[in-house]
């Protein structure tokens, strides 16, 4: 009887269980845990996003697995969870960034963008016949006034702001590592190293070719993807410090 009841409550996204839970939203969070991790780190000089691509076959073109996405000049997102769901949110975010430019002729703030996306996600927890987004995003960038910002979106549609965060599989472990290692005086290079070091906690055989890193710095206000050899350099630095 208990089981039957539970099944009824987890069928619709817009139905609360008697103890006030939305099971479909909680299941969406489980879907995110199945994905590989992405990490975001905010530093005084800019915001860093890093993601580990899991390549299942040597025949897959690595570049085709996209976990970091440029949204506008000054904002990028890292995703964890369902890639197809992430792509929908990424394009929604891109449109919202352009709407802000058309409407006000100014670049959108990172917080405004994150909230536009989470408000959109929220509607998929309150409508019939749809499922929530099975993806979390780390939204990183630099505000028009030069402040680095980092937000997380959750399947419930709640925005969180972080100094540093991990989304996806093994989140608790990586988050714990970031909590121990994060310092507010990190520079951008230090932020990249910390992000890679965090990713390496979930994957010991981290491969420079399989890691994506993007930074948005406060000088240029623009998204830059690190080249493979830059990533390799940072990883080598890590290995050096381990010994």
């Amino acid at each position: 009887m208990q089981d039957q009841n539970q099944q009824a409550y987890d069928r619709g996204t817009n139905i609360f269980s008697p103890d006030g839970r939305l099971y479909q939203v909680e299941y969406a969070r489980e879907a995110i845990k199945r994905g590989t991790a992405s990490v975001g780190v905010r530093t005084a000089d800019g915001t860093v996003l890093a993601a580990d691509r899991q390549v299942h076959s040597s025949l897959v073109e690595e570049q085709s697995i996209e976990k970091l996405h440029r949204i506008d000049d000054h904002i990028a997102v890292a995703s964890a969870g369902h890639v197809a769901d992430a792509r929908q949110l990424v394009d929604f975010a891109r449109e919202q960034a352009q709407v802000n430019r058309l409407r006000y002729d100014e670049p959108i703030g990172v917080e405004s963008l994150a909230k536009e996306v989470t408000d959109y996600i929220q509607r998929y927890t309150q409508s019939g016949g749809v499922r929530p987004f099975g993806v979390a995003l780390a939204v990183g960038g630099v505000d028009p006034d030069g402040t680095p910002r980092l937000f997380e979106t959750d399947p419930s549609g709640t925005p969180y702001e972080w100094k540093a965060t991990a989304i996806g599989g093994e989140r608790e472990t990586l988050q714990g590592f970031l909590e121990d290692e994060y310092r507010t005086d990190l520079d951008l290079d230090g932020g990249v190293t910390l992000a890679l070091e965090t990713l390496a906690r979930s994957n010991e055989d981290i491969d420079p070719e399989a890691v994506e890193v993007s930074v948005v710095d406060t000088e240029s206000h623009s998204v830059r993807s690190l080249e493979g050899d830059e990533v390799a350099g940072h990883l080598a630095e890590l290995e050096g410090s381990d010994e």
Partner: peptide, 8 residues
């Protein structure tokens, strides 16, 4: 998804 209106 609630109203069917343009979300952007």
């Amino acid at each position: 998804p609630l109203t069917g209106a343009d979300a952007v």
